[in-house]
């Protein structure tokens, strides 16, 4: 199905897209049809900056296991980082 549900968060981080590095303004997270992954549905993440244009985008299409593994890895890396190292 085409879902109509999207989690959107303001997010000012650096991402590298087809035109090089840019600063994102938000990230959207949603389950829907992928453009590339060989699956009917995937967990999709778009890091975007709408003020630059639609091409300012870094996209991920993940199956459920990959998405949860990624989330766990991010949490683990943050937990293991020396205290005070990250802003």
């Amino acid at each position: 199905m085409c879902t109509y549900l999207t989690k959107s968060i303001p997010l000012k981080v650096s991402a590298k897209g087809p035109e090089g590095w840019f600063t994102t303004t938000e990230a959207t997270v949603y389950v829907d049809h992928p453009a590339h992954a060989p699956a009917d549905h995937t967990l999709n993440i778009d890091f975007i900056n709408r003020s630059i244009g639609p091409g300012a985008r870094v996209a991920l299409e993940l199956d459920a296991a990959a998405a949860r593994a990624l989330a766990r890895a991010i949490d683990a890396a943050l937990d293991e980082a020396p205290e005070g190292l990250l802003p």
Partner: peptide
């Protein structure tokens, strides 16, 4: 309107982020 000339997947992502 939101994504003239953009690739279809970038356009879809932009419109989704803007509320559909």
């Amino acid at each position: 309107r939101e994504a003239p000339g953009a690739s279809p997947d970038d356009a879809a992502a932009a419109v989704r982020a803007a509320g559909g």
